[in-house]
Write a protein that binds this DNA or RNA. Sequence first.
DNA 1: TCCCCTGACTAATGCGCATTAGTCCGCGGC
DNA 2: GCCGCGGACTAATGCGCATTAGTCAGGGGA
Lengths: 354, 354
Amino acid sequence: MAEIRLPKARRGRPRQAEVARLAGVSQTTVSLVLSGNKQGIALHPDTRARVLQAARQLGYAPDPAAQRLAAARNDLLGVFSFTATFPTDVAHSYYPILVGVEQEAVARGYDLVLFTGSSSAPARAGRADALDRVRLADGCLFLGRHVPADELRRLVEQGYPAVHIGRRDELDSLAWVGADYAEATAEVVRRLAALGHRHVVLVCETDEALASTDRERGFRGALAQTGLTGEVVRAADPAAEITGEWVRSQLAAGVRAFVAEETDTCAAWRALLTAVEDAGLTAPADLSLALLGAPPADLAHLPEPTGFDVPKAELGAAAVRTLTALLTAGAADCSPLVPCEFRPGRTAGPAPHP
Amino acid sequence: MAEIRLPKARRGRPRQAEVARLAGVSQTTVSLVLSGNKQGIALHPDTRARVLQAARQLGYAPDPAAQRLAAARNDLLGVFSFTATFPTDVAHSYYPILVGVEQEAVARGYDLVLFTGSSSAPARAGRADALDRVRLADGCLFLGRHVPADELRRLVEQGYPAVHIGRRDELDSLAWVGADYAEATAEVVRRLAALGHRHVVLVCETDEALASTDRERGFRGALAQTGLTGEVVRAADPAAEITGEWVRSQLAAGVRAFVAEETDTCAAWRALLTAVEDAGLTAPADLSLALLGAPPADLAHLPEPTGFDVPKAELGAAAVRTLTALLTAGAADCSPLVPCEFRPGRTAGPAPHP
DNA sequence: TCCCCTGACTAATGCGCATTAGTCCGCGGC
DNA sequence: GCCGCGGACTAATGCGCATTAGTCAGGGGA
């Protein structure tokens, strides 16, 4: 039942003015010394030393809010992820991205601030709605499909430096970085072709997401390029449509390679695995399977799927690079597509001869 | 290779002054209308409506940095967790706390900002070191044992509202909330007493942490209270010291109940389980076991240990309550101890008659 | 000797907002 | 007919800092 009391006559934190008084100089000089004197004004080393000493003695630390207001910068980068709560859970799929973000940000001298869309907060009039908080930082990374488009648009239109992680097309003038799903998918098809496959089927959920259409595009492109034949199956309910029987019929039609798309649920991949098992077949002996992405954690005990990995840390780092380019140069023209790495895995093999 | 360019002639975000011009009022009036007019200055409804309309039309959103500077508040609460990069292993145990923090914060009209100790950033002179970033927020929660004590002390001494999650004694005048390990441990002992046990042994690692000494205190207190006899065994290397043979010797001495402390590794509990198995015994038939905390995830397949659960979400919520009390009243006297809940589990039972 | 220049600083200003002291107008009271 | 008063606002100020214009003393050069 201890009582903690804030000092009422707020001794408060020291400001530059106090440091200045102690060092016997002006507030301007303190600012000059402490903020690196970018305009190259001549300063005597002794003065500099006195100021630094005084600052240390008083435990001075700049107020980031004031810095942001005065200089329009405070070297903070925001990360906004629109999830229920902070994505600090290791199991969270955003986590590896954040690791890359942090490394790159630190390397470039920025600190990070995380925001989340705290969903339920009633938007009072005149109150910053969720997205506007990010203005505390010099620029912000946005993560996830559910970032409200209209608020984001306003932010961007008002000139706020923002970079979206994951391809985002609705808003031009919104910078983004994304994984190159099309090329990665094409590579998987080429590998299958190299293994002797002539017919490939891609199984997807019915999904309008760019990540999905990108894969389909890469798939079709690679078919054309390699001369394979193939087909895209979009199933509203993969578990119901992708059955053992379906697999058999495909085999009868000469298909020996199946590719599934990775999604949140991985429903297509799961359905495919189940169907193959139901059909009494095994990969890669009887047929080849590939997953366009990484398998979900709960399937970690199964043989590693052939497919590709999204370099999530690299994605985060690329986003930071783009954002800092925006901040320092006012523009960014680095390629927003990050290549994925092919994963040989153990579910695809040479096409069995008929 | 798209080129994203920030508007150079920065059309920028609208400020209150622009809204004021459009609405034909003064900036003061805009501020009054939009920030809720807490000083109760009379305003004509029409004026109010015009201002709101203008604000909406321009897409006005307040600058949180300016708000913080002018009003010394922006209704943001910080959460600082000190880990090298985004928490990897600890993250898991913090996560439920964050959930509680977020719920309570939202309920009280605060938004959250998350900071992490990005350790490695070279501390430039005059640059805010990691902890000082939290000043962007009105107050901050600190999470974890590794928050640097000296920086935290400075923050607190300068009157910054801070609450530590987890007991923290070195700094008086630092508010904290923590789980009531002592009482929870005492309850476990009482339950064992009620089951007919007369002798209880507590197995710990050698640990100076408060969480550990609190448990020991609760244990000894409950022994005295119930009239049981007991002993505390602190093992530097539990796996080596807590053996099947050791268990047998304890049994020979009349002990039928063993209690282990929960730690990061849960070494004591693991050692105990192994030792009991080595001795060819089973709980709760031959003896009773209790764990002072929650079992680690990798032991989830075993029978649920008797013991107690730390209400992590509640802990987070309590921390937010304490912090907001600090913010609004300038002081907090709510009890910082959050009670734990007894978990019957399936490893403790009636003491076998000799 | 006078002037200009350079080095080492400081005064003043403004960022966008909240707040504190007014200001001004209309109306009821005496 | 003048005063006072409350309603509806606005002017001015300052938060803590960065930045832009100075200021001032001393040292050549002509």
